[in-house]
Lab assay of single mutants.
Amino acid sequence: MTYKAILNGKTLKGETTTEAVDAATAEKVFKQYANDNGVDGEWTYDDATKTFTVTE
């Protein structure tokens, strides 16, 4: 399944996708990606669109 992350960081804005077996696995991948890029904020998840959003 393909999951998407939308990054609304102070220094990084954009989107990325990952293939994962479930939302929990995708969330770990996206949170690591955000952390590696200095983005730390509030996370939300929309199951209907399989989209995570982080906003700083």
Rank of each mutant, 00 (worst) to 15 (best):
residue 1 M to Q: 14
residue 1 M to L: 13
residue 1 M to K: 12
residue 1 M to H: 15
residue 1 M to E: 14
residue 1 M to G: 13
residue 2 T to R: 09
residue 2 T to S: 07
residue 2 T to Y: 09
residue 3 Y to A: 02
residue 3 Y to K: 02
residue 3 Y to Q: 03
residue 3 Y to P: 02
residue 3 Y to N: 03
residue 4 K to H: 12
residue 4 K to L: 07
residue 4 K to V: 10
residue 4 K to P: 04
residue 4 K to A: 05
residue 5 A to N: 03
residue 5 A to R: 00
residue 6 I to R: 05
residue 6 I to V: 11
residue 6 I to Q: 06
residue 6 I to W: 04
residue 6 I to A: 03
residue 6 I to K: 05
residue 6 I to L: 06
residue 7 L to K: 00
residue 7 L to Q: 01
residue 7 L to H: 03
residue 8 N to V: 13
residue 8 N to K: 11
residue 8 N to Y: 11
residue 9 G to C: 13
residue 10 K to L: 15
residue 10 K to I: 14
residue 10 K to F: 12
residue 11 T to R: 10
residue 11 T to H: 13
residue 11 T to V: 11
residue 11 T to S: 11
residue 11 T to W: 13
residue 11 T to E: 10
residue 11 T to Y: 14
residue 11 T to D: 11
residue 11 T to F: 14
residue 11 T to I: 11
residue 12 L to S: 08
residue 12 L to W: 15
residue 12 L to C: 15
residue 12 L to K: 10
residue 12 L to V: 13
residue 13 K to T: 09
residue 13 K to G: 05
residue 13 K to Y: 12
residue 13 K to N: 08
residue 13 K to E: 05
residue 13 K to H: 11
residue 13 K to S: 09
residue 14 G to S: 11
residue 14 G to E: 11
residue 14 G to D: 09
residue 14 G to R: 12
residue 15 E to L: 10
residue 15 E to H: 10
residue 15 E to G: 05
residue 16 T to G: 04
residue 16 T to K: 10
residue 16 T to D: 03
residue 17 T to A: 08
residue 17 T to R: 07
residue 17 T to E: 10
residue 17 T to M: 09
residue 17 T to L: 09
residue 17 T to K: 08
residue 17 T to W: 14
residue 17 T to I: 10
residue 18 T to N: 03
residue 18 T to M: 09
residue 18 T to P: 00
residue 18 T to Y: 11
residue 18 T to D: 02
residue 19 E to Q: 14
residue 19 E to L: 14
residue 19 E to D: 11
residue 19 E to H: 13
residue 19 E to K: 12
residue 20 A to F: 03
residue 20 A to G: 03
residue 20 A to R: 02
residue 20 A to Y: 02
residue 21 V to H: 13
residue 21 V to L: 12
residue 21 V to R: 12
residue 22 D to W: 02
residue 22 D to L: 03
residue 22 D to R: 01
residue 22 D to I: 01
residue 22 D to N: 09
residue 23 A to Q: 11
residue 23 A to L: 09
residue 23 A to C: 13
residue 23 A to W: 14
residue 24 A to K: 11
residue 24 A to W: 09
residue 24 A to H: 09
residue 24 A to N: 07
residue 24 A to G: 08
residue 25 T to E: 13
residue 25 T to P: 02
residue 25 T to Y: 07
residue 25 T to F: 07
residue 25 T to C: 08
residue 25 T to I: 08
residue 25 T to S: 14
residue 26 A to M: 00
residue 26 A to K: 00
residue 26 A to G: 02
residue 26 A to F: 01
residue 26 A to I: 00
residue 26 A to H: 00
residue 27 E to W: 15
residue 27 E to S: 07
residue 28 K to N: 09
residue 28 K to T: 10
residue 28 K to S: 10
residue 28 K to P: 03
residue 28 K to E: 10
residue 29 V to E: 07
residue 29 V to S: 05
residue 29 V to A: 08
residue 29 V to G: 03
residue 29 V to I: 15
residue 29 V to T: 10
residue 29 V to H: 12
residue 29 V to C: 08
residue 30 F to S: 00
residue 30 F to R: 00
residue 30 F to E: 00
residue 30 F to T: 01
residue 30 F to C: 03
residue 31 K to D: 02
residue 31 K to R: 14
residue 31 K to T: 05
residue 31 K to I: 08
residue 31 K to C: 06
residue 31 K to S: 04
residue 31 K to G: 02
residue 32 Q to L: 09
residue 32 Q to T: 08
residue 33 Y to L: 08
residue 33 Y to I: 08
residue 34 A to F: 11
residue 34 A to I: 05
residue 34 A to Q: 02
residue 34 A to K: 00
residue 35 N to F: 15
residue 35 N to W: 15
residue 35 N to S: 14
residue 35 N to C: 14
residue 35 N to R: 15
residue 35 N to L: 15
residue 35 N to V: 14
residue 36 D to Q: 11
residue 36 D to M: 10
residue 36 D to F: 10
residue 36 D to I: 10
residue 36 D to W: 07
residue 37 N to S: 08
residue 38 G to I: 04
residue 38 G to W: 08
residue 39 V to L: 13
residue 39 V to P: 01
residue 39 V to I: 14
residue 39 V to A: 04
residue 39 V to D: 01
residue 39 V to K: 00
residue 40 D to L: 11
residue 40 D to P: 04
residue 40 D to V: 14
residue 40 D to Q: 13
residue 41 G to H: 03
residue 41 G to N: 03
residue 41 G to L: 04
residue 41 G to A: 03
residue 41 G to P: 01
residue 41 G to W: 06
residue 42 E to F: 12
residue 42 E to W: 11
residue 42 E to A: 10
residue 42 E to N: 10
residue 42 E to G: 05
residue 42 E to Q: 11
residue 42 E to H: 11
residue 42 E to I: 14
residue 42 E to L: 11
residue 43 W to N: 01
residue 43 W to E: 00
residue 43 W to M: 03
residue 43 W to K: 01
residue 43 W to G: 01
residue 44 T to H: 11
residue 44 T to E: 11
residue 44 T to W: 07
residue 45 Y to Q: 00
residue 45 Y to E: 02
residue 46 D to Y: 04
residue 46 D to Q: 04
residue 46 D to K: 03
residue 46 D to A: 04
residue 47 D to M: 09
residue 47 D to Y: 08
residue 47 D to R: 07
residue 47 D to I: 09
residue 48 A to K: 13
residue 48 A to S: 12
residue 48 A to Q: 11
residue 48 A to G: 08
residue 48 A to E: 13
residue 48 A to H: 11
residue 48 A to N: 11
residue 49 T to L: 09
residue 49 T to Y: 05
residue 49 T to V: 05
residue 49 T to S: 11
residue 49 T to A: 06
residue 50 K to V: 03
residue 50 K to G: 05
residue 50 K to R: 15
residue 50 K to W: 05
residue 50 K to T: 02
residue 50 K to Y: 09
residue 50 K to F: 10
residue 51 T to K: 02
residue 51 T to G: 00
residue 51 T to F: 02
residue 51 T to H: 01
residue 51 T to I: 06
residue 51 T to V: 06
residue 52 F to L: 01
residue 52 F to K: 00
residue 52 F to N: 00
residue 52 F to D: 01
residue 52 F to P: 02
residue 53 T to G: 02
residue 53 T to F: 11
residue 53 T to L: 07
residue 53 T to R: 06
residue 54 V to A: 03
residue 54 V to R: 01
residue 54 V to K: 00
residue 54 V to T: 02
residue 54 V to N: 03
residue 54 V to L: 13
residue 55 T to L: 06
residue 55 T to M: 07
residue 55 T to G: 05
residue 55 T to Y: 08
residue 55 T to I: 09
residue 56 E to Y: 10
residue 56 E to M: 06
residue 56 E to N: 05
residue 56 E to Q: 10
residue 56 E to F: 08
